[in-house]
């Protein structure tokens, strides 16, 4: 199961690369102007390039997958990526006076957000956490690639490195407590990111992870993106998703039908102040008209209903405590 879950990172990466190659990402309005991300496409191309020398097999898998992505997938990748970027950016901007703000990306995979964020916010410590194999691959790539390495190196004044890559099995409570206590500060305002992470954990392990994290850090926000199975009687999306993923790649989503709605998903963060939207809400209400027409100009979006079905089954949660 561990391997199968790790491999979902290749999907996320190839989706992001596909969205970049078609021009969905970077979004000038959101990522460049609002979040001040620069060189977004370049850093991803650098990563892909170095991935090739680390593992030809994974590279060719990702390269193949990114060639045939449907518009409906590109829209979803766009929505997921920019809406998380905005949440992070808004929190960091409102905490610019703090000496240290930390970001803990649980199940980080190949995510490259740390590069622009570390550059833009000198008070940020960024901790990427994932399974050992995923971390080793990412470390190799970042070490090998001069441009990426340089972007993540210590500040000129010789301060300690503000970026950490740490391996940890988040299903293991004791290991998680130990890792987080050793490598992070419990007093600093903290952003926890879990992007398609909780959905692969069983109920018990995910509850433990949430309670461990909320216990350790005094204050912060948790940004979580996950699928929800759907709660209406006639809604078969979740059941079909579980069986498709099980049949095609032995991937399990144990809590998809437990936390199957915005309400039940939010209940996992009972003691927090929770805001939750499904990705269709975000598409309909939070993306300005000019941005929508830019997206429309990139590819014909064949099936709006299909996009709606997909995106109403994914949520973005922000829990503050």
């Amino acid at each position: 199961m561990e391997k199968v879950v790790q491999q979902t990172d290749y999907d996320a990466l190839s989706c992001r690369l596909a969205a970049i190659s078609k021009g969905y990402l970077p979004s000038v309005a959101f990522q460049v102007q609002r979040c001040n991300y620069h060189g977004y496409k370049e850093m991803h191309m650098e990563y892909l390039h170095s991935l090739k020398s680390v593992s030809r097999r994974i590279h060719s898998k990702i390269f193949r997958a990114m060639q045939n992505s449907f518009p409906v997938m590109n829209y979803g990748t766009y929505l997921r990526t920019v809406s998380i970027d905005i949440q992070i950016n808004d929190f960091l901007k409102s905490h610019s006076k703090f000496q240290n703000v930390q970001i803990i990306n649980l199940g980080c995979g190949s995510d490259l957000r740390m590069i622009p964020i570390i550059k833009n916010f000198t008070n940020v410590t960024y901790i990427d956490i994932d399974y050992k194999d995923s971390i080793e691959m990412k470390r190799k790539i970042l070490d090998q690639n001069r441009a990426l390495k340089k972007a993540l190196e210590s500040d000129d004044d010789g301060e300690t490195n503000r970026y950490k890559l740490i391996s940890c099995d988040l299903n293991d409570e004791a290991q998680t407590v130990r890792t987080l206590s050793e490598s992070t500060s419990s007093d600093s305002p903290t952003i926890v990111i879990s992007e398609c992470v909780l959905c692969y954990m069983d109920d018990h392990a995910s509850k433990q992870l949430i309670s461990v994290v909320l216990d350790i850090y005094k204050t912060g926000i948790w940004i979580s993106y996950d699928p929800i199975g759907g709660s209406k009687f006639s809604d078969r999306f979740g059941i079909i998703m579980q069986s498709n993923l099980r049949e095609s790649r032995h991937l399990e989503m144990p809590t998809l039908m437990i936390y199957n709605s915005k309400e039940t998903y939010s209940s996992r963060f009972a003691n927090c102040n929770v805001e939750i939207k499904d990705m269709w809400d975000i598409f309909e209400n939070d993306i300005p008209k000019e941005e929508i027409s830019r997206l429309k100009s990139l590819q014909f979006l064949d099936e709006v209903e299909e996009l709606k079905i997909m995106q109403t089954h994914y949520v973005l949660l922000k829990a503050s405590w």
């Binding site: 989706c15 979803g76 095609s248």
Partner: peptide, 22 residues
């Protein structure tokens, strides 16, 4: 069904790419 009564696959589920966000 993606498999017939005998458990044989009639619809290939091993797609080159899975159309979910993972």
């Amino acid at each position: 069904q993606s498999q017939n009564g005998m458990g044989h696959t009639i619809i290939p589920t091993k797609k080159p790419q899975m159309d979910y966000f993972l």
